[in-house]
Amino acid sequence: MTGHEQQRPTRREDEPDETPVVPAQAKAADTDADVDSLLDEIDEVLESNSEEFVRGFVQKGGE
C-alpha cells in the first residue's frame, strides 16, 4: 500500500461549490503504429455493412 497517501483527493470540503473545474480532457488515443496496425486488423473482421449490422442488432430486455 505504498504511496496512496500522496494520491489522496485534494478537492474536497475546501473547494467552493461553483468553481469551474477545468476538464482534464482525456487525451486522444495514441495514433502510434500499434493502434494503426490494430485498426487495419479490425477492418478485416468488422462487419462489412456496419449500418445494416447495427440496425439488425435488436434485443429484447432481459433479467
Binding site: D30, T31, D36, L39, I42, S50, E51, F53
Partner: peptide, 24 residues
C-alpha cells in the same frame, strides 16, 4: 482507445455506424 483511433484515422463522428459496430 479503439474508437478514438477510428475517429482520428477516418474522421468519423460519434453517430457513425462503424463506431456502433465496434462497440457491439
Amino acid at each position: 482507445r479503439l474508437l478514438e483511433g477510428y475517429r482520428s484515422r477516418d474522421g468519423l463522428s460519434w453517430d457513425h455506424a462503424r463506431l456502433q459496430a465496434v462497440d457491439l
